[in-house]
């Protein structure tokens, strides 16, 4: 893989995140609304709403990673080429970190909006369950010994196929709505730019981290193979 990918995406992410922070805190309007009688309504969150730009951006990457990891694991089981396994593992490991951000920011949001730290609200639950699958994947990778790649690939595939079931299971919610009528689609103009720039910036950050992890996994394997060859030839002891 090209050596430039990580630096380029890293710089894009750094600039993007800086711009996103500026837009979110300096440009995007505060979120509040009124009842017909003039009183502030319950969905007025003011500065608390700012966490939305980062929470949702990270959540997108978490969901994307489940599919990247699942599809690459299918490719790995079909072809047995370790490059696919590297991508699946890298995406999952990075997504575990992103998922932690989703859960923490989601929890903060829940405290601000509903005055509880955790309310088993469906999409937060869904993030938690997907995160648990990814965390299980990482544990398997770490502790299952030589056949860890196969077992983890199976877990990624089963986890990906389970997503629609988790989605149906958690059902309807108090979460801000998604889809055509949802929060993302109906953002005000000032909010929309900030939101999508934030998503793009964190996507770059995600890609940079995943590619860096893939490269380190590849380097690890090359080193191991070289060492084995050295041992076979009797050069190393």
């Amino acid at each position: 893989m090209n050596k430039l990918v990580v630096p380029v995406f890293g710089v894009l992410a750094a600039v993007g995140i800086a711009v996103a922070v500026w837009l979110v805190f300096m440009q995007a309007p505060l979120q509040y609304g009124f009842h017909p009688d003039g009183a502030l309504n319950g969905s007025s969150l003011f500065y608390n709403q700012k966490i939305f730009y980062f929470h949702v951006a990270h959540a997108f990457m978490l969901f994307a990673a489940v599919f990247v990891s699942g599809v690459c694991s299918i490719a790995f089981l079909k072809t047995r080429k370790p490059k696919w396994d590297d991508v699946a593992m890298a995406a999952t490991e990075v997504a575990v970190a992103f998922g932690a951000v989703v859960l923490v920011t989601g929890s903060v949001w829940a405290k601000a909006a509903w005055d509880v730290w955790w309310n088993w609200e469906p999409r937060l639950t869904m993030s938690l369950l997907l995160w648990l699958v990814l965390l299980g994947y990482v544990l398997v990778r770490r502790f299952a010994g030589p056949s860890a790649d196969r077992i983890a690939a199976g877990m990624a595939i089963f986890g990906m196929v389970g997503v629609p079931f988790i989605y149906k299971m958690v059902g309807q919610d108090s979460h801000p709505a998604a889809g055509r009528e949802g929060v993302v689609a109906t953002l005000g103009p000032g909010m929309r730019a900030a939101f999508w720039i934030s998503v793009a910036a964190f996507l770059c950050w995600f890609v940079a981290l995943v590619v860096a992890r893939v490269q380190s996994a590849r380097a690890e394997r090359e080193l191991r193979e070289l060492r084995e060859r050295g041992l076979d030839l009797g050069v190393l002891s």
């Binding site: 299980g136 299952a144 056949s147 389970g162 299971m169």
Partner: peptide, 30 residues
Amino acid sequence: VFAATLLKVRSRDVLLPVILYPLLIPLFVA
């Protein structure tokens, strides 16, 4: 499926629930 794949793994007893429970949560909830 997963018990069979874990057959040769030393820490299989710990890993089996680590793998199964996250995947099977929808089933148990249902």
